[in-house]
Amino acid sequence: SEEEIREAFRVFDKDGNGYISAADLRHVMTNLGEKLTDEEVDEMIREADIDGDGQVNYEDFVQMMTA
């Protein structure tokens, strides 16, 4: 549901600035027990970053979650 997606976005957007940065993503993945290299984190950001601004905004996140 849209509310679940919004809630998930809030979990990833640690600093609440409306964007998921590589640092935000790394933090959440580490908490989930996933040890990722910087390259892996950057690749995840690139794949999710639809508009190419280097971070994942809510619209990018929705597209990723509903793809």
Rank of each mutant, 00 (worst) to 15 (best):
S1Y: 12
S1A: 07
E3F: 11
E3P: 04
E4L: 09
E4S: 09
E7D: 09
A8C: 06
F9H: 00
F9D: 00
R10S: 05
R10I: 03
R10E: 02
V11G: 04
F12Y: 09
F12W: 06
F12N: 01
F12H: 05
D13W: 02
G16V: 03
G16R: 07
G16A: 06
Y19R: 11
Y19Q: 05
Y19E: 02
I20G: 00
S21I: 04
S21L: 09
S21K: 06
A22K: 13
A22Y: 13
A22Q: 09
A23M: 11
A23I: 07
D24K: 04
D24A: 11
L25S: 02
R26I: 09
H27Y: 14
H27A: 11
V28T: 03
M29Q: 01
M29W: 04
M29Y: 04
M29N: 02
M29D: 00
T30H: 13
T30I: 11
T30N: 11
T30S: 14
N31T: 12
L32W: 09
L32G: 02
L32E: 01
L32R: 04
G33I: 11
G33K: 14
E34T: 15
E34W: 15
E34Q: 14
E34C: 15
K35H: 13
L36S: 03
L36Y: 14
L36K: 06
L36N: 03
T37M: 05
E39G: 07
E39M: 09
E40I: 13
E40R: 12
V41F: 14
D42A: 12
E43A: 15
E43G: 11
M44F: 08
M44K: 04
I45N: 01
I45H: 02
I45K: 02
R46N: 07
E47I: 15
E47Y: 15
A48G: 06
D49F: 09
D49L: 11
I50V: 12
I50N: 07
G52Y: 10
G52Q: 11
D53E: 12
D53I: 10
Q55N: 14
Q55C: 10
Q55H: 10
Q55M: 14
V56R: 01
V56G: 01
Y58C: 02
Y58I: 14
Y58G: 01
E59S: 07
D60C: 15
D60P: 15
D60S: 15
F61E: 00
V62G: 01
V62K: 04
V62F: 07
Q63G: 06
Q63R: 15
Q63D: 05
Q63F: 11
Q63Y: 11
M64Y: 09
M64F: 09
M65A: 03
M65Y: 06
M65C: 04
M65V: 05
M65H: 03
T66E: 04
T66I: 13
T66H: 10
T66N: 07
T66Y: 06
A67H: 14
